[in-house]
Design a protein around this nucleic acid. Sequence first.
RNA 1: GCCGAAAUAGCUCAACCAGGUAGAGCAACUGACUUGUAAUCAGUAGGUUGCGGGUUCAAUUCCUGCUUUCGGCACCA
Length: 634
Amino acid sequence: MIINLPGGNQREFDSEKSLFDIANEISPSLKKRSIVARLNGKLVDMDTVVTTDSSVEFITTDDPEALEVLRHSSAHLLAEAIKTLYPHAHFGVGPVIEDGFYYDIDLGEDILSEKDLPIIEKEMAKIASQNSKIEREVVSKEQALELFKDDPYKVELINELPESEEISIYKQAHFTDLCRGPHLPGTKWIKNFKLLSLAGAYWRGNSDNVQLTRVYGTAFFTKEELDEHLNLLEERKKRDHRKLGKQLDLFMLSEYGPGFPFWLPNGMILRRELESFWYDVHLKEGYKLIQTPIMLNKELWEISGHWANYRENMYTSTIDDMEFAIKPMNCPGGMLVYKRDIHSYKDFPLKVGELGLVHRHEASGALNGLFRVRNFTQDDAHIFMTEDMIVQEIRELVRLFDYMYKVFNLEYHIELSTRPEDKFIGKVETWDRAEKALADALESMGQDYKLNPGDGAFYGPKLDFKLKDSMKRIWQCGTIQLDMNLPERFDLTYIDSNGEKQRPVMLHRALYGSIERFIGILIEHYAGAFPTWISPVQVKVIPVNNEYHLEYAKTLVGELKDQGIRVEIDERDEKLGYKIREAQTKKIPYQLVIGDKEVESGQVNYRRYGEQNQVAVPTYEFIEMILAEIKEKK
RNA sequence: GCCGAAAUAGCUCAACCAGGUAGAGCAACUGACUUGUAAUCAGUAGGUUGCGGGUUCAAUUCCUGCUUUCGGCACCA
């Protein structure tokens, strides 16, 4: 039997051997470090016996796959501990997730609270220290059903496994789980783990099903890595935009309006900067700007289809015996504007933008700071054109989006969502053409994207721009959606070169997505230390001694204000250190300390936020520098 | 919406487990100090303990309904 190893090496063995033995033959230390192995491309347990010529790659603790195995086995260990403490517990699923693992558990009448987590952890550690072997066994469906007959969730899973699939179970000490594997050779590897949180989670992710208790945890091979991860979690909490929003006086929320954010003066500056940037860019790009009403007659929403499809999320009001709805989207209003005029193919592409305030009644449990609110401003635009313009327009948009996101140093990836399986309107051929147009545009630019089959809106395929925040959550911000529905429903037309009426193609697109959410992401992205151009206060002037330096400081503030720089002076009778500390905690980009030296030389002494060194420059030089920085959006 | 947890001064938190009508730091205000890169000192004021109901001689504390927030789930045209 010949075993091919990575790097073109080969070993020959007379008889069948377990992967343990093979690793041992290569080197005892390899055996010690190996968690699982890739046998002919498939990850398997170390006690797997190899009988024929094969390729083998040992996965050691250094490989990323090993971490997943560790976490998967940690989930089993968690289950075993729970089973020990709560013998009546039934188990759902316990998979590995991005930063750890979880297990869904039915505890019957029992309720777990955070206080129980350390107790469970202790039990886990106790079991792990016994170093029981984790062993795989293949069973028939009947055996599996018999084995898990008291576990209703497992029975459900077993019954849904395809007949062709081999059913395996994993045994460790006093616990056996239905599992595909692979797993660690033994529980002794599980040393550095932590249970993090509890949550309710619907069985199989369906809200019609019962809710199980989900325990989240994480695990690493070394204590250092675990500590580092836990520190990271702490760090992320510090960046939480809700916390920073409070500290930096950006926005507030009130019980009187759950999900309706209030913008404070500092937050308004962020908004206004983002909005005026948006307006500038869009005017440059040839967009026309409009504003449509917040509230429109129910009949309009019947035409648009929102009344039938989106009513649950709409706020309504009856006025003069007529029913009105507050707009959850801007498009129907935009349609009315389009229909006001007769359009020619010569007008195309017609790009119409609107920063429109929409209201959506989101589920109470979904609300989350600025990330999920009930009223928000969409930076919407509708682009009307002929079908053969699609590829070119998409290219233009991807370029525009890329430019805007780069200004903020934001990472993103694009997803192409295609026709839903059953719920869609229009002809399949039209969908195919539209999807191809989107894909062609991306490919012609060499732009990578992920395919999201069946995830399109019912009215058309879309490109979503997903930004990653500091909590590693993915947020949909930008979106480009082809709409094959509204032009039809509103009977939009244009006159083609033959003088005949035609149906235009329409794109919806949003770049920030929602200004509120985008600001939330920026707060966390910058940890509240905004680049100068959007910073609510750009410069803080601090006189060393009011008696001698206040006058000069005030003159300086005047000069900066004349240049449009947002500057504040701290003229309180406090120690210098006190005022500096406050300027630092408010994360103001530049603090200028004005004392004798500056007054005498006509200079300023600045310190950039996040830096320790102080720089003395002539006032005009400082002004030139900061103006350039603002202009370049740094 | 669902599961679980929480709500005390403007902010961050204590007192609650074993009921006896709340305390600290920061911020605010007053005064003194007159300062060179992250907190000067002293004093003053600040609370219907989220809202309502119940148990009790007595409720911030125990029970309960509601509201909001947090962690998730579901949702997210």
